[in-house]
Design a protein around this nucleic acid. Structure first.
Lengths: 297, 297
DNA sequence: CGGCGTCTTGTAAGTTTGCTACAGAATCAC
DNA sequence: GTGATTCTGTAGCAAACTTACAAGACGCCG
């Protein structure tokens, strides 16, 4: 009962609440922002119940008194209203829509952070740092993540590739070896071509890091499964959130691999960054080169 | 003084604080998480000052009493410690590094949300909804964002393209017209080839939506400048955050354009999504097709 | 349908917490 | 070195939160 953000807990515990406590829950859920600065007496007034009922309500949803409840509510609200509360509707105005999407993205990232397997991260970092080259594969939205990774990782001097279509991916798997780190990205973890590719990579002895949304076939097949559990709900209006979390996880991996390297690698990056800044201004003279290389204008 | 998260305000107001108040500030900044559940008396004890000093401290940094301070602190902490507090260091353990990167990503998204120009969003949505086709351009990390947008927008039935290199982009600009929505993405807003491309697009009469990090040349050149102000600090270790914010902005635009459409478009997407789910399982049989199309496995 | 038991809710008192007025101490200016 | 000003702590007060208890509501079984 005491897991997760307060608002989620209220929703979950709704059926077990007494009638008056439920009135309190309704007031809180109706507009959490309004409740945050309220005093106990004010909330009692607003819900039409007595003050002790508020305290009992707070205890019922797993808080240690009203103080604790208010603090936890404030934190919940700061992270945005949970997804269940923020279904995007056609009649919402611009500000509301923007808020909902950002709130959802932020809440989701927070959720991923809390459910990340640190041991798996460590293992993945070790594998990546030990590899002589890295292959990133993904299709659709996950393909975007793979390309992003391909941009970020070569900074360490390790050759990277991110083959675009399933055939190229299969080929890359076929030519991989024990010193290859093979990073497969699939939110569903059930895309057949990715699974086939991963099987081949493992047969060739590559270390496979599987970034996926839950305990899926891909996770089973991977040497190091990395579950990035995002709150991808089924509402059509709600945009895909899994990419964001996957990108941040890539950031984490890249940063930690970098931290493993010595200061010289760091220096390389500094000089690279300054060179990039100067070349960027003259980019149009040599625009034919591989567009993925130039960096991040 | 009363703008921004509390911790930032404390940092900013540090010089104007009295000596005892400063002791309080030190305690708070040293470990904000510890302070959140503290009572006024406890914090006074911890800082080695009297209780009224705490109250004066709270007022000094723009809070309305200790109550308000505690709530605001709780909210600040929920969004992660501000970037200034969380420089990633080599000796950090895995959990710390993960926390810092996620915190920073989340804080940054929150910052962007607060600084987004809603009028510009509205204008962009109107332009996108009115266009007959949409072109997304960006290089490097922004190129990734452009490709993501290309995956997302065709859902509405409007043809989209995201030319990959500078030449192709220039070509797309040259063939654009008044009914083209031209979305240029560049965090610096100073990449020369992008600026050249945008100039051409405008000459051809296209509506140019410029997504950029600050009031840059690109913003000046755009019909509708969309400033996505992320907290990209200069620390080498700190990963690029601008992509995330840009992706979320793309989500917002896509969602809002979709909301403008009628229910039929919605139905199209529902059926598309279910079809996608079934086809995904058999994808390897027809993997030669354009890998960007299949969706988001 | 009515009485009894349990669960629920509000009243009231008690305790903690946060706030304010005031006075002493320190600091700075002259 | 003295005076004025600013800062800091002591003490008391008001408000908020909590607990104990009793009245009321509800359901169950006779």
């Amino acid at each position: 009962m005491s897991d997760g953000p307060v608002l989620e807990r209220i929703n979950r515990g709704l059926p077990t609440l007494r009638r008056s406590e439920r009135k309190v829950a309704d007031v809180v859920l109706a507009d959490p922002h309004k409740v945050v600065p309220m005093t106990l007496a004010e909330l009692a007034e607003a819900a039409g119940v007595s003050q002790p009922t508020i305290v009992r309500f707070a205890n019922a949803i797993g808080c240690d008194g009203f103080h604790d409840f208010r603090i936890q509510l404030a934190q919940s609200v700061a992270l945005g209203i949970p997804a269940t509360q923020s279904v995007i509707q056609a009649q919402d105005d611009t500000g509301t829509t923007v808020s909902k999407i950002f709130d959802f993205s932020i809440t989701s990232l927070d959720h991923v952070r809390r459910h990340l397997d640190l041991a798996a991260i460590d293992a993945a970092v070790a594998a990546l740092a030990a590899s002589t080259h890295i292959v990133f594969v993904g299709l659709g939205a996950s393909g975007i993540v793979a390309m992003d990774a391909e941009q970020k990782f070569p900074l360490f001097g390790v050759p990277c590739s991110a083959p675009v279509d399933a055939h190229q991916q299969f080929l890359a798997a076929s030519t991989s070896g024990p010193s290859t780190a093979f990073v497969a990205i699939s939110n569903t973890g059930r895309t057949v071509s990715i699974l086939d590719t991963v099987r081949v990579a493992r047969e060739r002895g590559a270390v496979v890091i599987g970034i996926t949304g839950d305990r899926s076939p891909l996770a089973e097949l991977s040497t190091i499964p990395l579950v990035v559990e995002s709150l991808d709900n089924t509402d059509v209006y709600t945009p895909t959130i899994s990419r964001l979390a996957q990108l941040v996880v890539i950031d984490v991996l890249a940063t930690m691999v970098l931290l493993r390297r010595d200061a010289s690698a760091l220096e390389d990056i500094r000089t690279m960054k300054t060179r990039l800044a100067t070349m960027r201004s003259g980019l149009h003279h040599e625009a034919v080169r591989d567009p993925n290389r130039p960096g991040r204008p």
